[in-house]
């Protein structure tokens, strides 16, 4: 019996609890379930992991403190001191994406961040938020962001549209980078997994490749969460400090 390989089936949304309110579908899906688990795990790490409030931290408290200091350093380094008030948001964003990515690597779970609508929503929040912060902080001067300094006026005709364009595609690049990384990794895992299942004894080779891909995906999961968070910091820095 030949197994059919359907690598995209893993991304299917299942409505675990169908809910409809006022004609809007708000069903509790497998994706929503994984989001809930991520929230619970992050909260557990930060609250129960630190319940001893030890002077010399234990394993879980160390992880909680390291993640705190990692993001705090990132905000401090990239945004500067004015970024402190956005630290909770960046931390939430980083931990949410990190846990969503890692949880997606657990077999039979679901990868929330492989949904373009999810990554785009996160990116859009960042983009709109940053733009509003820039306008509130600097008003009309925020437009200086699109005018590179020390450039001849003739070149500005060319550079300003480029700067404007690069600013406007930020939410798309931010969303697609994370989405594409997750999609590609998990699709590859499924394809080689399908090979392994259908090749019998020879399936050991695609199986080995799958093991290597899992290792790579662990790296990608952490790296993409970091990239998303650090780009958010850089965009915030643009809006707050106007380079």
């Amino acid at each position: 019996m030949a197994l059919e390989i359907r690598p995209l089936e893993q991304f299917k949304i299942d409505r675990l609890i169908p809910i409809h309110i006022g004609g809007v579908d708000v069903s509790y899906t497998n994706a929503a379930f994984l989001m809930t688990i991520a929230v619970l795990l992050i909260t557990a790490l930060l609250v129960f992991g630190t319940r001893k409030r030890a002077l010399v931290p234990g394993r879980w408290q160390s992880i909680a403190e390291m993640s705190y200091e990692f993001v705090a350093d990132m905000v401090e380094t990239n945004v500067g001191h004015g970024g402190q008030e956005f630290f909770p948001f960046v931390f939430t964003l980083f931990m949410f994406i990190l846990f969503a990515n890692f949880l997606g690597l657990v077999p039979y779970s679901y990868t929330v961040t492989s949904q373009i609508i999810v990554t785009f929503a996160l990116a859009a929040v960042v983009f709109i938020g940053v733009t509003i912060i820039g306008i509130v902080r600097h008003g009309f001067h925020f437009l200086r962001l699109f005018v590179p300094q020390g450039v001849p006026a003739a070149l500005l005709l060319l550079l300003v549209p480029i700067e404007l364009l690069s600013y406007c595609i930020r939410p798309f690049t931010l969303a697609i980078r994370l989405f594409a990384n997750m999609l590609a990794g998990h699709t590859m895992l499924a394809i080689f997994g399908g090979f392994a299942a259908s090749l019998g004894l020879l399936g050991i080779f695609p199986m080995g490749i799958d093991i290597l891909i899992v290792a790579l995906e662990v790296l990608v999961a952490a790296l993409q969460a970091y990239v998303f968070a650090i780009l958010t910091c850089l965009y915030l820095s643009d809006a707050i400090n106007l380079h």
Partner: peptide
């Protein structure tokens, strides 16, 4: 629609939990 709704719910819950509970706790310890 369901994804956006639940993303908004879970993200906002996480944000509130972090900013009111988790982060002050860890920063207090540090």
């Amino acid at each position: 629609a369901p994804q956006l709704v639940w993303l908004a719910i879970t993200f906002i819950v996480l944000y509130v939990l972090m900013s009111k509970l988790g982060l002050p706790r860890v920063s207090g310890i540090i």
